[in-house]
Design a protein around this nucleic acid. Structure first.
Lengths: 113, 113
DNA sequence: GATTAGGGCAACCTAATGGTTGCATAAGCC
DNA sequence: GGCTTATGCAACCATTAGGTTGCCCTAATC
């Protein structure tokens, strides 16, 4: 009954989705995807929470592999790491495909009756 | 500095990602995407948590619009509602595109120097 | 060298999450 | 009718998450 491919990778995929499952973090990702690397101070200026709050969110994104940091002088710059997002997207595609295929099977089954 | 389209919809998108951000729920989605409608009892048999636990997870998925229930006799059957997943997928696509475009800009800027 | 700006670390707080158990209800079946 | 099965409702519990504040450190700047 289980659907191997998707379910099997649920342990590694869930953290990625969870990382995106917060409005503040989604905004951070949206900001970062315009390119380049931004400091914590810059990113904080774009939100309405404290710097420490932003740091925590960035850490969550980093743990999920969605984002990467690089030190430059006294700054810590963050940038997007889109590979994991790509995998999440492929999973959603796979689910959609699977669902469509199932609909097709159900339809042809109904018509054969 | 903000990236309108994606950030603006972060309030509606975040719950969808959050709903997918749990291994148990991801497994439920994977099970449901093979098609048809499954009862709570059937879905519970596929996990290692209690029926009430599964019910709660299904509720979270339903609140995010990822899943839909239909009553049939004394059973409550659940099935996938892939529209929201589709929107989540489009968002990830948009982020990827945006990022690639930004990389292109950075590259051509570096080459012009 | 003193000041300022960017950031790390840790403690703390509240609310939400993931999970459980116990009991009640409703529909099928003998 | 009486048993069984599928589910709902509510209370409860432990842990995590989101956020804050306070203090310390280090790199730039004047």
């Amino acid at each position: 009954m289980n659907q191997g491919g998707i379910a099997q990778s649920s342990e590694t995929l869930a953290p990625i989705f969870a990382a995106l499952g917060d409005p503040t973090r989604l905004k951070l990702v949206a900001t970062l995807c315009v390119g380049g690397a931004f400091s914590i101070a810059q990113l904080t200026a774009n939100t309405d929470i404290s710097r420490q709050g932003v740091t925590k969110h960035l850490q969550v994104l980093a743990d999920a592999g969605v984002v990467r940091d690089v030190k430059l002088g006294r700054e810590r710059l963050w940038q997007l790491e889109p590979a994991q997002l790509e995998e999440a997207k492929r999973t959603l595609e796979a689910i959609g495909k699977e669902w469509e295929a199932a609909l097709g099977r159900l339809k042809s089954f109904a018509e054969s009756k």
